[in-house]
Amino acid sequence: MVRLTQGTFSFLPDLTDDQINKQIQYAVSQKWSISIEHTEDPHPRNNYWELWGLPLFDITDPATVLFEINSCRKQYPNLYIKLNAFDNTRGTESCVLSFIINRPAYEPGFELVRTEDIGRNQRYSFRSYATAKPEGSRY
């Protein structure tokens, strides 16, 4: 079994709800906008996770974010869910914090794919084993 490592804190054990709440409190204190995303395909080059609701702009109460997180977890208990925080102080939305807050009980990992290329060259890529199943039935 392979543990997906993407974003801040990815090499640490999963954050508890209390630790997630502390990160949310920090993001809110910095006046960062927060979004919650989920996916079945956690490939590192998959930048387009599904957005849960609308981004949370001008949030002053961390409980609002926790409510949305718990709603997303209830709807998608077996998917990857991450929290993103964006800072717009320089006039652009820059992602300053991103970490996984939910993951499936079973993470199948990735497959190394080798293909022949011109001149006996080898090309390597990888794909998630989860994508072998159709969307909606992966976890």
Rank of each mutant, 00 (worst) to 15 (best):
N78G: 02
R90C: 09
R114T: 15
G136Q: 08
D87H: 04
E37V: 10
E135Q: 12
I100G: 00
E111G: 05
T115V: 04
I24M: 09
E111C: 08
G7C: 03
N47D: 14
N102R: 00
P44Q: 07
F126Q: 12
K82G: 04
Q75F: 04
I69K: 03
L51E: 09
G53L: 10
A63M: 11
T92F: 09
F110E: 14
Q23K: 15
K82E: 02
L12E: 11
D58G: 08
Q122W: 11
P13L: 05
A63T: 14
L54P: 09
Y124A: 00
T8Q: 08
A27I: 02
Y129F: 13
P104V: 05
S94Y: 11
I20H: 02
D87G: 06
K82D: 09
E37G: 06
P44H: 11
C95Y: 11
L97K: 13
R73E: 01
I59Y: 04
N84C: 09
S98D: 13
L66A: 12
L97E: 14
R73N: 04
G53P: 13
L112E: 15
I101N: 00
S128L: 12
Q23G: 04
A27M: 05
S33H: 05
N70W: 01
C95M: 15
I34V: 06
R114A: 14
L66Q: 15
S128D: 06
W32Q: 14
H43T: 12
N21F: 13
P44A: 03
F9R: 12
T89E: 11
A130L: 14
P13N: 10
A130D: 07
I20S: 01
Y106E: 03
E50D: 14
G7T: 04
N102E: 00
P104K: 01
I24C: 07
E68Q: 15
N21E: 15
E107W: 03
E37I: 05
